[in-house]
Amino acid sequence: MKTDIILAGVGGQGILSIAASLGAAALNENYYLKQAETHGMSQRGGAVVSHLRIADHPIYSDLIPTGSADLILSVEPMEALRYLPYLSPEGSLVTNTAEFKNIPNYPELNKTFEELAHKISIIRIDADQMARDKGNPKASNMVMLGAASPFIAIHDDIIIKGIETIFREKGEKIVNQNVEAFKAGRAFALQK
């Protein structure tokens, strides 16, 4: 078993809590895990990426080789496209549709996604809206993790335990909101 995931977003969007939830889940299951993060300059509103690798056997490289990621999970649509060379031809792309426009030349992306949908499996979800509907706009990340969860080789109950571990300090209400957000995202993806 192995799942190689490219996590993408913009500095400050908090892709690391997605990684942390999966990390806690992998640790619970005694899986091997490597997760390379972006710290430093790019965290100031630049493009950030995390390579997350989970397997039931030892993992060598902290970086995923090109053409071999099972999943691109992006919390921002344009950032989903930046790492396409990493995706395996059989891989899936799950992205938020809420655009983060902090640059003057942000492109029109709909046509690109439509063309891409002929080549690979894509799930696009307005995670920001869904998180607002669930009462916590900050839980948009967990909606995304939920939407991506069918493509991750860890049982959803275990991932939920991971989410509970990560948010435990913040109290029961926050934990529940994040778990609900995860479930809503997962339900959306399973309907597709």
Partner: peptide, 20 residues
């Protein structure tokens, strides 16, 4: 021999870091 990976779409633009 490496297989040719998917290409980055041409529409993509850079997103450099910026002041908050």
């Amino acid at each position: 021999e490496l297989e040719k990976p998917l290409e980055m779409p041409e529409t993509l633009v850079g997103r450099p870091p910026s002041l908050c």
